[in-house]
Amino acid sequence: MTNKTNTDFTFVSKPEIVDHYAGKSASYGQLVWRRFLRNKGAVVSAIVLIVIALIAFLAPYLSQFSPTTPYPSQSNLAPGTSGHWFGTDNLGRDIFVRVAAGTSVSLRVALVAMAIDLVIGTSYGLISGYFGGKVDLFMQRITEILSTIPMIIIVTLLVLVMRPGLVSIITAMMIVGWINMSRIVRAQVLELKTREFVLSAKTMGEANSKIIFSQILPNALGQIITTFMLSVPNAIFLEAFLAFIGLGVPAPLASLGTMINDGYTQAIVYPYMVIFPVLFLALIMLSFNIIADGLRDALEGS
């Protein structure tokens, strides 16, 4: 038997493994935030919305002009005259301050609409979709009845009973404004409750409330947030439309809808009276829509 030395063998060299990862894993919220920041349109829209919000809530308090007090001696001034950046209306009121005050009304309506969607629409959709059967059938008949009543009829009836203003508009939204959200949430729940993780939670005997809030709601959150953001411009447009036809906030309070209504009759002679409120209304609605699209893409990982 011959002796073998080390030269008779060739050792296979193992490649050196280099760990290039030195950071911490990002959470789902951080990933969504990074994806959102990569969407330049959504970021710009968010900045525009923040600037408009600051103008809306600060300008009426920092300006020397009142949004409701008339100054007949300064009526129909062109933009930039005597310190009036957007000019004045036929009563001498500063249009910039009135646009800011009207924008704050629209944004408050938007926040209320989001809260209504969150509390009523989401809860209604979760209960209807999860329990199904007779519960779902009964709850869906209610939404079908309410959805057949036009919003304008509801608000008109409320105005006959209540004083025109934000309270009547908000009450109308509480009656029918949550229906679209409830339908979207219900559709998500109907799809999610057949997934394996929900079925396993039921098999393990977890309570229905825990399954809804710990298993189903987090997985439907992306669609819910997107619907929130898309409901905001609809609520703003509704308030402006109702104010335009005389069912909004009463005079002399400022609203984008009332300013458009006051300005369009003089648009040929004084176009700036209608241009600026229309511009702010368009920017708000467009910004919310672009932000909603950006959030949807970020939540879906695209």
Rank of each mutant, 00 (worst) to 15 (best):
D262G: 15
L146I: 04
V44C: 04
F280Y: 07
F213C: 07
I179W: 14
T156Y: 08
P233N: 14
F237P: 07
D117H: 03
A207T: 15
H84W: 00
I145G: 02
I152Q: 06
A59R: 00
N39K: 09
G92V: 02
A243W: 13
G177L: 13
Q64F: 12
I284E: 04
V119Y: 04
S25D: 13
I216Q: 06
I184L: 00
F288L: 05
V274P: 14
F57L: 09
G246S: 03
V97Y: 01
I153P: 06
L58M: 00
V167F: 06
S168A: 12
V18W: 01
Y124L: 07
S214K: 07
I212C: 12
A201Q: 10
V278Q: 09
A298P: 01
V167W: 04
A78H: 07
I120K: 02
P218K: 05
P70H: 06
D293L: 14
T122E: 08
Y272L: 09
W33Y: 12
G248N: 05
L137S: 12
S82E: 04
I153Q: 01
I152Y: 08
S231L: 06
M259G: 10
I154Y: 07
S147P: 14
I170C: 07
V44P: 01
L295V: 11
D262C: 13
H84L: 00
V48H: 07
A243M: 04
V274W: 14
M204K: 07
A240W: 10
A172G: 11
L118S: 10
W178L: 08
Y124F: 14
V249C: 08
A101Y: 02
L221H: 02
L37C: 12
L279D: 09
I245E: 03
G205P: 11
F197V: 09
S182C: 09
K4M: 15
S104V: 05
I47W: 10
G133S: 01
G41A: 15
Y61R: 03
Y21C: 09
V176G: 06
P60L: 00
A187N: 08
V198F: 10
N76S: 03
P252F: 15
T7M: 05
G301R: 03
